[in-house]
Design a protein around this nucleic acid. Sequence first.
DNA 1: ATACAAGGCGCC
DNA 2: AAAGGGCGCCTTGTAT
Length: 551
Amino acid sequence: MDRIVLRRRGDVVEAWRCTGDATAAEVTRLPSDELPGWVRERERTPVRWVWDDTTRWYPALLDAGVRVERCTDLRLTHAVLRRSPFVDQWPLAGEDTPGWDDLQPVTTAEHALFPLADPADRLDPVAEHDRQQAALAASAERGRLALLLAAESSGALVAAEMTHAGLPWRADVHERLLTDALGPRPPAGVRPPVLERLAGEVRAALGAPGLNPDSAVELLRALQAAGLPVDDTRQWTLEQVDHAVVAPLLEYKKLARLLSAHGWSWLETWVRDGRFRSAFLPGGVVTGRWSAQGGGALSVPVAVRPAAVADDGWQLVVADVAQLEPRVLAGMSGDAAMAEAARSADLYQGMVAGGAVATRAEAKLGMLGAMYGGTRGESGRMLPRLARRYPRAIELVEEAARAGERGAVVSTLLGRGSPLPTGAWAQRGADLGEPPDDDGPREDRDRARRAWGRFTRNFVVQGTGAEWALCWLADLRNRLWRLGGGTPAQRPHLVFFLHDEVVVHTPEHLAADVTREVRAAAVTAGRLLFGGFPVDFPLDVAVVRSWADAG
DNA sequence: ATACAAGGCGCC
DNA sequence: AAAGGGCGCCTTGTAT
């Protein structure tokens, strides 16, 4: 397959076509505004586009109605290769390396207008691509790394397409929801009526007439002055207390949160033309999970999901994986007993059936503790029993924790490496002498060490889970495209992704096909990561008008 | 005026 | 006494 490296030089785009012989590249130069038409033409035959960063190229193509099938996103692949313990770093070394290390995605809406001095323009994607290919070829784990790089790049395309499409959002539904909960929209700087009434009830219950319940400091003082035994003002803490202030205060906090995080100003800022618009950023988290920028797209609360409604004649297909991370752990550790439990639609129930624990609640608590590092209480007490029944799975996370405590790097199944610890406890020779003055006493160092162990313990599972999800997304994207449906605007398309959940916006008549493809893509992802090892990834799939009606 | 930390809470 | 991982983002409160 042809690879075409795109390089921007002023108003001109250079397209370097590589046919496998690195010395015989054929270069085409064309004005930027002719690029979309040229790309569309080239897409008639299989081609992989190689560019510095998808966020710098793809939005303009999508605006012009041009979709590409595959790409290599050098920014993302560089980041993976630079940190992978399976990659020798010397083939990646070049003058440009710090520039690639520091390259940031572009997330402004004005993607057509590049900043005057985009640091990307000083980088040479042709040279970087050669370096990356050399580094990959020299790796003993080139197979799994190649899969990771392909999945990461494919994720970049999905993210750009989702960002372009936006999540269908009914501002009128959202506004009605706000008015029902808070009362009519007040002028700026004034509390909505319902909040003002609740604030009054809180002040009366505490005998604190001037209290601003939005101030945690003031509120804590007032609660303590009224004799409540609390050291913070968290919801969980307040629920433990029996006092007349608790009910109105919890209600106030809930509604104040709705107002500030997803109220009228959120609507004005993030919803335009019936779409919630925010930027999805693949690789935004060290573990490989995505992050999002704008509007808190990765934490859309259940309370406002009724406003996510499919267009007329369309449906939302909402799919999520049940217990992704324990299933991933079963697969990556090759733990046959845990895989057996994972053959059930409910993995935790499968663990009960397998005789490891007595109740589903114990199974869940124990697994969360094993994956997050919980040692306290019931979660910690479950661990020995889990370790007896699922020795390979538990040993994998325990070893990841020990490695982290040593200051070592751990990696995901496909080879994404964890960052090096930065604390003074982890510096070379830290064990040998007295603790440095700036690193506190021994207990502090041990605490930091254990905290890093919990991070690396979770890294291997969360990161491999993110890899499964990337493979799922990538395959689903291809499957959705093959369903057809006419112009890009008439086809089923991904509109949302959150770690283990996707939402597809589809014309009604294709909803059943989309459901089938979402499930098939999950099977593909499992095979890609774990080959023939029998671990299932069952999905909950719902075809709904509104996101709130799923699950 | 602006920047940042803390407290808090939403999502997985 | 501390206590499960990863995020984004809001307001308040303080520092510069």
